[in-house]
Simulated scan of single mutants.
Amino acid sequence: MSIYEYQIKEVSGTEKSMADYKGKVLLIVNTATGCGFTPQYEGLENLYKEFEDQDFEILDFPCNQFGHQAPGSNEEIVEFCQLNYATTFETFAKIDVNGKNEAPLYQFLKKEQGGLAGKAIKWNFTKFLVNKDGEVVARYAPTVKPEEIKADIEKLL
């Protein structure tokens, strides 16, 4: 399967096709609003502002699986991000990135960058970089700050 065959859910509940992102470089991140890494939203927004006019998108997937650090509703999470970090990239509906209710997109991402069984997401703000052909080219630990990924993004653009 290709990344473009997956559906993702917008905050409104509407399904969106990953095919809408064909030809773009993607940074896919599982996030949380009450995490020690939450200030990375600022770095993510800086990357987005710098590259948004060059076929670059950040896909933000809130996840409440790690320490229950994304407890709000989808709408509350979007409001928090926009008010506190002035985010303009799209935040999607909350998802699970591990376990029995794991989003199919995350099964794919982990398989592509974690081996046959896929390596579990260990915490919030794990990042996946996808090239313009839809290939998952890198996985970054939560400790990797968005600005540290800038050179890798530039190479793909």
Rank of each mutant, 00 (worst) to 15 (best):
M1S: 15
M1D: 15
Y6F: 15
Y6E: 08
Q7W: 13
I8K: 01
E10F: 11
V11P: 06
E15P: 11
E15M: 09
K16T: 12
S17W: 09
A19G: 05
D20T: 14
Y21L: 02
K22H: 08
K24A: 08
V25P: 00
L27S: 01
I28T: 02
V29D: 01
N30M: 04
T31G: 04
T31N: 02
A32S: 12
A32Q: 01
A32V: 03
T33R: 05
T33D: 06
P39I: 13
Q40P: 04
Y41R: 06
Y41D: 09
G43N: 12
G43I: 12
L44C: 09
L44W: 02
E45A: 06
E45D: 14
N46K: 15
L47F: 08
L47P: 01
F51P: 03
E52R: 15
E52A: 11
D53W: 04
Q54V: 02
Q54G: 08
D55F: 06
L59Q: 01
F61S: 01
N64P: 05
N64T: 11
Q65K: 08
G67K: 05
A70W: 01
S73C: 12
N74E: 08
I77F: 03
E79M: 14
L83H: 12
N84L: 13
T88D: 10
T88E: 15
F89E: 00
T91Y: 07
A93I: 04
A93P: 03
K94D: 00
K94Y: 02
I95W: 00
D96R: 08
V97Y: 02
V97Q: 00
V97D: 00
G99W: 08
K100I: 10
K100P: 06
E102K: 15
P104T: 07
L105C: 13
Y106K: 09
Q107M: 14
K110T: 10
K111M: 11
E112G: 04
E112T: 13
G114D: 12
G115I: 14
L116C: 13
L116I: 15
A120K: 12
A120L: 14
I121E: 00
I121L: 03
K122I: 10
W123Q: 07
W123R: 07
F125R: 01
T126R: 03
F128E: 00
V130Y: 01
K132Q: 10
R139H: 05
A141D: 10
P142N: 14
T143N: 05
P146T: 10
P146G: 08
E147F: 10
K150A: 05
A151R: 13
E154G: 03
K155W: 06
L156P: 00
L156I: 11
L157C: 11
L157K: 14
L157F: 09
